[in-house]
Design a binder for these strands. Structure first.
Lengths: 217, 217
DNA sequence: GTCTATACCGGGATAGAC
DNA sequence: GTCTATCCCGGTATAGAC
């Protein structure tokens, strides 16, 4: 979906807003459920789900509030639509063969690598996912999926420890948490112009596996 | 402020709520601004600021909605009160002498160590701080303070690189981001019964500086 | 597929009695 | 210092015309 950043925000906010493309003046945009979800994901990322009103969405989409209900049943459907790509992206990684075969530590590295890539390609969706609080049914569902994913990572960390591939004198669940924390924090920093996914991957792998300390070697 | 967890949540939520201590039936709790801020911080942590209503707060505090306004001017003041301890805690670290004197990498390690400690002692306040989105003036102020703190860390990482104490073939700002991301992600994992702050510190330092990889050394 | 108009509820906040 | 009652706004969602 092609979008274009609006020049001035007429409303009372210092944030930028997104308008779906079509005619010059931001009305009759010919929206679909998908295009609205994309707009929603951007706003959810900026302001959070609860703080984003249907009025905000309608302004950003260039259609009336009520028109949104022609495409989706309600606000929560927009959230679900925004979260699904992120969750599918994450679980898709686990199905890839390099995540299933080979030494545990290599599988772990592959997952971290791909996680960074998914994060960059699906940035607004992943960002929405990582900021949930569990106030609605949809949020709880998404948090549950995330927990499952995190447990898979933790299990893999433990496997790698048992195989003697990573240090085993620390708690596996905690190490997994820190690893995910480092990876996920990239949403706060990454912009397409700041670095390529490959550079991100290199730095994450460097810190997580080799450490920041300068070694005499 | 002494608090006690409520056994059953009569309202429509799967989350626990907090009631200030005093008589048996949760009324006339003798609240102060401080005790209300503590209650608020817990709720903000669970549900997020926007999703927490004054009605939620009054229920958790055991007083009427309107009674809250006797102690604080409004909802945003509760947020500010909850954020201040976290921000003061973080900036307090930077003033400690081990954060100001010595080799850059040692200063950095001290800050990381203390950051973990502040995070554990001020958990609800720090959690509230880390989940802000910048929708209100208070939130913007807090985010600005956080940015200042993060910049200080980034500068210190760069210093340590220049001194040859940590690897210098990666972007300093990005490395700092990952380090903070790992530390901050502890709020998602830490519970007083799961680990001591000292254990957390050990694991964080291990991963961030030495790396997870098992070294032949 | 979009609009205007509106229903309806819950949000934050205030008034004034006790 | 707490209460009950109330205000007013903005929230999500719906009705029905074009």
């Amino acid at each position: 979906m092609i979008s274009v950043q609006e020049g001035a925000d007429g409303d009372g906010g210092p944030r930028s807003s997104w308008v779906a493309h079509r005619p010059r003046e931001g009305r009759y945009a010919g929206h679909t459920a998908t295009s609205l979800i994309e707009v929603a994901a951007h706003l959810f990322t900026e302001r959070g789900y609860e703080a984003t009103s249907m009025a905000d969405l309608s302004r950003a989409a260039g259609i009336a509030k009520s028109s949104i209900y022609h495409h989706v049943p309600g606000k929560e459907a927009l959230l679900r639509g925004a979260l699904e790509p992120a969750i599918e992206g994450l679980f898709g990684i686990l199905s890839e063969s390099p995540a299933q075969d080979g030494a545990p530590v290599e599988r772990l590295r592959h997952i971290v690598r791909r996680q960074v890539e998914v994060l960059t390609t699906e940035l607004p969706y992943v960002t929405s996912l990582l900021r949930l609080r569990g106030n609605t049914e949809t949020e709880c569902w998404a948090l549950e999926r995330r927990k499952v994913f995190d447990r898979r990572i933790a299990a893999l960390v433990r496997e790698a420890m048992d195989a003697g591939e990573i240090v085993d004198d620390i708690d596996a669940a905690l190490a997994a948490r820190l690893l995910s924390g480092a990876v996920n924090s990239l949403i706060e920093w990454y912009r397409p112009d700041r670095a390529t996914p490959a550079e991100l991957v290199a730095v994450v792998e460097r810190m997580a596996f080799e450490g920041l300390r300068e070694n005499p070697a």
